[in-house]
Nucleic acid binder design. Structure first.
Lengths: 197, 197
DNA sequence: CCTACCGATCGGTAGG
DNA sequence: CCTACCGATCGGTAGG
């Protein structure tokens, strides 16, 4: 990857290390070593270690939000008011963001708890708003009879957990390409929700 | 909870803290403070910090394995060769272990990566063997036509991720009791797999 | 981006 | 279970 800035290079290396060993177990000097500079030199580009984590988590969150927004819009254009179409689009978009940058997404999924109190609760609120997209379509699908009666909150949590698990086992050089995995997860998700009529 | 031993008290407090802040972000002195003793005093009962993590992870793994073994046995006794019955029993057993001790299970699900290389790969192997139980029943169900055609490895990963997500959001004092949550997750799991015939 | 350095904290040991 | 202490490492600053 071509680095546009030193700051970006730091965040890329940090994403890799944070995902691999976790934020707390990664030191500023670990990041610096991977860039062949002294630890103290990083402070010319970042103000704190948490600052780097925040940049990664915030960018990942924005990517997920933007992709979901676009996916919902396109689903609505294709099949207005169709909850299955909307959920399928959301799942596919989520998988695409996740497989598009495993490091960044993995840090977002697993390491946001290491943020300070205000940022942590800000992330929690954004995650809840994101999950609410799924809850809304599940709720609508139940009302329409497209989806089986179920608890929308549990179904949405289970569904998102299922696809977020990908962050732990997806391997870009693995058996299946990202597109095929997305197909499978869309199928599994819809089957989990759909009524059998 | 009545503590049977000082060692057990240490592990209980450590489970709580490891789950809350993560292993790397929790110091031996944090654990000691929660027990109102000096940090160095803990070393009369444990040989290292990783030793404590290992005890927690190993015990949790054993609980999941034992529960799964029993669940498969009972399912086979009730409905021999019925993959749906087996998966339902496995999911229910898993949820019961998880909700039975959120701290221990949460550490097992999230913090096993902090173990040293040998222990980490031992845990990975046990997790794979555990997941293989699900894969086997899914494979059998597809062969029988009970389950929809799908990739058993992806389906098993997705299913386990979905229920493991519980470790992140289950609240013993929450809206729904553990039993009701288990019912929902069993339903969602079977629906995810079952063919619509 | 470097050297030099700060105070704090880490996991762990010695010896009682 | 305590006091006293070890060497190592931590995030971060000063001053160039």
């Amino acid at each position: 990857m071509v680095e546009v800035s030193r700051r970006q290079a730091i965040e890329d290396v940090a994403s890799d290390l944070f995902r691999e060993r976790g934020y707390a177990a990664t030191s500023i000097r670990d990041i610096a070593r991977a860039l062949s500079v002294q630890g103290a030199s990083l402070y010319a580009h970042v103000t704190s270690k948490e600052d780097v984590l925040w940049a990664i988590v915030d960018r990942a969150a924005s990517r997920f939000e933007a992709a979901a927004e676009r996916a919902e819009g396109e689903a609505e254009r294709r099949r207005p008011g169709d909850p299955a179409e909307a959920v399928a689009a959301l799942v596919r978009a989520h998988v695409e963001v996740l497989t598009g940058d495993v490091d960044e997404s993995g840090v977002f999924v697993r390491e946001w708890r290491s943020l300070g109190p205000e940022r942590r609760s800000a992330v929690l609120a954004r995650r809840d708003a994101y999950e609410a997209r799924f809850r809304r379509h599940i709720h609508a699908g139940i009302a329409l009879g497209t989806f089986e009666m179920t608890d929308p909150a549990i179904a949405a949590s289970a569904l998102l957990s299922a696809i977020n698990g990908l962050a732990s086992w997806y391997d870009p050089k693995g058996r299946l390409p990202a597109g095929r995995i997305a197909d499978h997860l869309v199928d599994l998700s819809l089957r989990m929700l759909s009524s059998e009529s």
